[in-house]
């Protein structure tokens, strides 16, 4: 088995509307795969097909090399799933719910109870253990859903916008957890439309727009495009600006709230990188910040999604 998830020409129609077109996902073992796309791109629809809630109109799905949905029962022994909108038995308490889900995942009663206790603490709902699910806030529900995905210690996690309702600190914690789960060797398939989050936790991405997979691959490989626009802060912005303004390879330069934004002719990037630091050193100017103006992933997105073009 080369890929944990592999789809072949996965296609979905809702009535006559074609929502997913010939999707060929390839999710290698052990990666954190960011499934990135704008609202309505078809992320949730794809995930629902991966989790047997929707039937593909045509195409194949293989998970762990097994065919879905024919081998659903076998596959699901090793899958943890978190839906976009948390679903749960609202009348159960958190403990009851997680224990039940644990038991359905094949755990023995004692194991399920032990896992439940640990996970409630892990996701930060320990103090709410005896509250009914319907009494929880949406963020708390999402935490419970995350715990329920982890309960049987699955090899593959399929998470549909897992951070949507989390508070800022919760998001940071969550990203940390995903990274450490990946270190344990789990494969994680996570959908999102927040680029910065995907950048922090994913090492593999699939970009989807209007039901089509636009790019797929290792983040480090996809983002090997030279940047041409940089944000710069120095201890003497005035002098630095003066220097750059005279250079022919600087296409545009302006200062905004103490940050210099410079656009460099891509043909002369080498000169820029050699001359600018040398000048700063010679003048005793200290460099405080130097970074590409857009993050690499964002840039790919903008290129591939033709941002600004109204799409329907």
């Amino acid at each position: 088995m080369e890929h944990v998830i592999e789809t072949k020409d996965l296609t979905k129609f809702f009535g006559k509307r074609n929502i997913i077109y010939h999707l060929n996902l390839k999710v290698p073992k052990g990666v954190v795969y960011g499934f990135l796309g704008p609202n309505g791109a078809g992320k949730t629809t794809t995930i629902k097909m991966l989790t047997a809630a929707l039937r593909p109109t045509y195409g194949e799905i293989r998970i762990f090399g097994l065919e879905m949905p024919q081998k659903r029962v076998e596959i699901m022994k090793n899958v943890g799933y978190m839906p976009e909108v948390p679903i749960a038995y609202e009348d159960m308490t958190i403990v009851e719910f997680l224990t039940y889900i644990g038991r359905l995942s094949g755990l023995k009663k004692e194991e399920a109870i032990k896992q439940t206790k640990e996970l409630m603490r892990y996701v930060g709902v320990g103090r709410l253990a005896l509250n009914k699910i319907k009494e929880l806030s949406s963020g708390q529900k999402q935490r419970v859903a995350f715990a329920s995905a982890l309960i049987a210690d699955p090899e593959l996690l399929i998470l549909d916008e897992p951070t949507a309702n989390l508070d800022p600190l919760g998001r940071i914690e969550f990203i940390g957890k995903i990274i450490s789960l990946a270190k344990e060797g789990k494969t994680i398939f996570v959908s999102s439309h927040i680029v910065s989050e995907v950048e922090k936790m994913c090492n593999y991405v699939g970009l989807i727009n209007q039901g089509r997979l636009i790019a797929q691959g290792r983040v480090s490989e996809l983002t090997q495009i030279e940047e041409t626009e940089y944000d710069i802060i120095t201890s003497d912005n005035g002098k630095a600006c003066e220097f750059l303004r005279e250079k022919p390879y600087v296409r545009e330069i302006w200062e905004e709230e103490g940050t210099i934004r410079v656009q460099v002719d891509p043909r002369f990037l080498d000169e820029f990188f050699l001359q600018f630091p040398k000048y700063l050193t010679s003048q005793g100017i200290r460099l405080k910040l130097f970074r590409p103006h857009t993050s690499p992933l964002e840039r790919i997105l903008m290129e591939k999604f033709n941002i600004g073009e109204e799409s329907d």
């Binding site: 989790t51 047997a52 029962v73 076998e74 022994k77 799933y81 679903i87």
Partner: peptide, 14 residues
Amino acid sequence: DRGTIRLLLVKPIK
């Protein structure tokens, strides 16, 4: 109706 059937479908239960 409530969608909880999806919780069962992602479990190893026939």
